[in-house]
Design a protein around this nucleic acid. Structure first.
Length: 577
DNA sequence: GCCGTTTTCGGCCCGACTGTTTTCAGTCG
């Protein structure tokens, strides 16, 4: 039972999804299952807070039944529907849904006919060939289930974005010079900038699929070929992890609709198809069919595809069935890489970076930036060769020399200052006012309580010289969760103190994530997208950072490093007021 | 279970693929 005061919207969404999973295992009517999922989706899409919703069934997708479940949960802190389901369906079946080829119906059958309730039962039943004898199953099913059981814990189900970045780049390079390839694109969740991905999807336009197929099977690192048909090649590429890669080969005229189809998300596609259906049309990867005449139209680009439905082009990053179809009836221009005018967080050889100040300045200038901030670590961070007051003053002299060589670029002399475990800052105010740009950051004592962490962050934000908080949660995707930040409090404090929050563009971090920056934008809290570059190459993370910002629906007005230096300086003044 | 310029029943997104079947159900993206 849950304390009813502590129930939030996510809890309700989770409850509805959990009920759907149990119904699936019961082999219930698929439409009933999807009704629960749709209700969860409807809540996800509704932007109101829990307290602002009183008439649940006025939300499209929530009716009498799901409203009952929700209000009961809000009143009692538990749901009888779920409790009963849990009595009927063993909990041990749930992880078995992750086995390839096993869905709710087959599992329901295994449970009912063979009394299989968990991994061990299933393994035993396969080994004694009871599964193969079951109607609807066979020898191959049994082998696949056994193989699936082995893979169940072999590697994480979803890989961090950063872990597959290299594989993606290698494939794109190879496709770029491949015979018979007219055009190609990444698709799937990688294109939508999700921070973890299950596999990589590529769409290839070609009139010679057999020629392309041969070359795909020869790609470097191919460890296993899963499927190799006329339209689909599916391989496993060996890297740090084993990465599944799907290639879809289509005629050029179907490229746009296929790309849209395999970019997803699944929920977005469902909504697009519903829209089409209401107009007497049918969307598939091969085009849009007029149901009455059977005529199929294709498109040169996704933009044209969306225009066909009287929509502006919906960027891949927001195709999550979270209101994008409604929003893009009008336009909603998201930030682009071209909007970025500078990078306010980077390191040099003075602390733990790989490049000199001059080199970083040259790369930034080549990118057309108007300003950068040199922000090496502060003295507390010994492991990173952090700078004390004396070395920071020396560094400023060096920066002044470099400035003369790059008159087109404003180079701010800054620091990424540690917020110490006791909540004090690494420098006193007298020294901080000498600097052009001060970032506050936590790099130590990650395991403190939420109260201790918040005290540290608040101290930094209340300081008039701290312009922004770097990587606010300290997480490393797939590796560590970060420290205990109360995000609502952090955002509220940022609003009060005019402190900017960072979207750290390093793909290992993406910190803040797309969901929280979206909340920031709604609250009027400003974001800065920075690479935290430690080398020339990592300055390029700006592209990924902008992708995450787009996933959070950010427009350039919310992102301070799309502003001119004058606008930025005007905003900084608000802190001192 | 939800919904209705097709409104209280009958439909609910689409197609490929697989393995099981003799025409299709289940799973997946």
């Amino acid at each position: 039972m849950k304390n009813t005061d502590a129930i939030n919207k996510k809890d309700i969404i989770h409850l509805l999804e959990e009920i759907a999973i149990y119904l699936e295992l019961k082999g219930e009517n698929p439409f009933k299952i999807s009704a629960y999922r749709k209700a969860a989706q409807a809540l996800e899409t509704d932007t109101r807070a829990l307290s602002e919703i009183d008439d649940w069934s006025s939300i499209k997708g929530i009716g009498k039944g799901t409203q009952g479940v929700i209000t009961e949960y809000l009143t009692n802190g538990e749901s009888e529907t779920l409790t009963l389901l849990k009595q009927e369906v063993p909990e041990g079946l749930i992880p078995l849904l992750d086995i390839q080829g096993l869905g709710g119906k087959k599992l329901a059958k295994l449970y009912q006919e063979l009394k299989i309730e968990n991994i061990a039962d299933l393994q035993a039943a396969c080994e004694t060939h009871k599964v193969a004898d079951l109607k609807g199953f066979g020898k191959k099913s049994e082998e696949k289930i056994l193989a699936g059981l082995l893979n169940l814990n072999a590697q994480p189900e979803r890989l961090p974005f950063d872990a597959v970045r290299g594989v993606r780049q290698n494939i794109e390079t190879a496709l770029g010079s491949m015979d018979g390839v007219k055009r190609f694109s990444i698709a799937g969740s990688m294109r939508r900038m999700r921070e973890t991905v299950k596999d990589l999807d590529f769409i290839i336009a070609t009139e010679q699929p057999e020629v392309v197929k041969e070359q795909l099977l020869e790609l470097a690192g191919v460890k296993e070929v899963i499927a190799s048909g006329d339209t689909k090649v599916s391989v496993v590429i060996e890297d740090k992890y084993d990465v599944s890669v799907d290639f879809r080969m289509v005629e050029n005229k179907a490229f746009a609709t296929t790309l849209h189809h395999f970019t997803g998300s699944k929920d977005h596609n469902v909504m697009m198809r519903q829209l089409a259906k209401a107009r007497g049309e049918k969307i598939s990867e091969y085009g849009v069919e007029n149901v009455e005449t059977g005529e199929v139209v294709t498109f040169d680009s996704e933009k044209a595809f969306f225009q066909h439905f009287d929509l502006h082009e919906i960027p891949p990053e927001v195709r999550e069935a979270k209101g994008e179809i409604e929003t893009y009836k009008k336009t909603h221009p998201l930030v682009t890489l071209e909007d970025i005018k500078g990078d306010l967080h980077m390191h040099t050889t003075w602390s733990d970076g790989a490049q000199s100040i001059e080199e970083m300045a040259r790369f930034a200038s080549d990118k057309g930036y108007e300003y950068i901030a040199i922000t090496d670590h502060s003295k507390f961070l010994r492991v990173a060769n952090g700078l004390n007051e004396i070395r920071l003053r020396e560094q400023r002299e060096e920066i002044e020399r470099v400035r003369k060589r790059f008159p087109e670029l404003t180079i701010l002399a800054g620091v990424e200052m540690d917020i110490l475990p006791d909540g004090t800052l690494d420098f006193d105010d007298d020294f901080l006012q000498e600097l052009d740009y001060v970032i506050g950051a936590i790099h130590s004592s990650f395991s403190q309580t939420e109260a201790e962490i918040m005290t540290r962050l608040f101290n930094a934000m209340e300081n008039p010289y701290v312009k922004h908080i770097a990587h606010p949660t300290g997480r490393l995707i797939g590796k560590r969760d970060g420290y205990k930040v109360n995000m609502e409090q952090l955002i509220q404090k940022a609003k009060e103190t005019h402190t900017i929050l960072e979207l750290n563009a390093n793909p290992k971090r993406f910190d803040l994530n797309s969901e929280w920056i979206n909340v920031c934008q709604e609250q009027g809290v400003k974001i800065t997208i920075n690479t935290d570059a430690h080398s020339k190459e990592t300055l390029e993370f700006m592209k990924e950072g902008v992708g995450v910002a787009r996933r959070g629906w950010l427009t350039k007005e919310s992102i301070v490093n799309t502003w001119s230096l004058e606008e930025l300086q005007a905003y900084w003044k608000k802190k001192q007021e």
